[in-house]
Computed example of a mutant assay.
Amino acid sequence: MNVVSVLTYKSVEHMLRDGGSQAWRADRRRLRRATYVVTARHARGPYKSEGPEAHKHAFLVGKITEVVDADIDGEAHDPDEKPRNKIMFTEYALIDGPELPLAGQNPVQYWDSLSDLNIDEAALNWQTAPEPVVLSPMDRAKEIVAQAHGVSADRVDITIRF
């Protein structure tokens, strides 16, 4: 197993800002053995898609550098539950498809190679990802509200009265 694929509603810009793709319930040992993460559009989930790609179509390949605990909306981790995972990458390549041959409903699936997904590794144009952005608590709150209502964060104002 060399590749993990994930279905995500998040855009390329969102993942680059976060430093990777998150927050996945998956076996961390299996994720860490993978060399590549392939992100595909999840256009039929509970969150509004942030990209134009068709459902199940791949749009980014990342070279996995690390798998860490995901920060889920700044919430404390439930000690009785395994933490979700953030798949980090510092190099990525944008692709236009293909539709992934996914089996079942799990948004996280494993593959032996990129060729199993009809992706030509030699044709990938690798780019260096920018440093992840660390959001202030207020900006993070705006992101959460924006996601819940399907709008961009710059459309959200939060007022605090004392």
Rank of each mutant, 00 (worst) to 15 (best):
N2S: 15
V3D: 12
V4T: 10
S5Y: 03
V6P: 09
V6F: 07
Y9H: 15
Y9G: 05
Y9F: 15
H14Q: 08
M15T: 13
L16I: 09
R17F: 00
D18T: 01
G19D: 08
G19C: 06
G20D: 08
S21A: 15
W24S: 08
R25G: 11
D27V: 04
A34L: 02
A34N: 10
Y36W: 15
Y36M: 06
A43Y: 03
A43I: 05
A43L: 00
G45M: 06
G45V: 10
K48Y: 03
S49L: 08
H55T: 11
K56C: 12
H57I: 01
A58H: 09
F59K: 01
K63W: 06
K63H: 12
I64C: 07
I64L: 05
T65Q: 07
E66S: 11
V67P: 09
V68F: 02
D69H: 10
D73R: 10
D80C: 00
E81G: 00
K82I: 01
P83A: 05
P83E: 10
P83M: 07
R84H: 07
N85P: 01
K86A: 13
I87A: 02
I87Q: 03
T90A: 13
E91V: 04
E91M: 04
A93Q: 08
L94C: 05
I95K: 01
I95P: 07
P98R: 04
A103W: 00
P107T: 12
W111Y: 10
D112M: 03
S113I: 09
S115K: 12
I119A: 09
A123V: 09
A123H: 03
N125E: 15
Q127N: 15
Q127T: 10
T128Q: 15
A129K: 06
P132C: 03
P132V: 09
P132E: 05
V133Q: 08
V134P: 00
P137K: 07
R140W: 02
A141C: 10
A146E: 11
A146C: 06
A148H: 13
G150S: 06
V151G: 04
V151D: 05
V156R: 03
D157Q: 13
D157M: 06
I160W: 07
R161H: 14
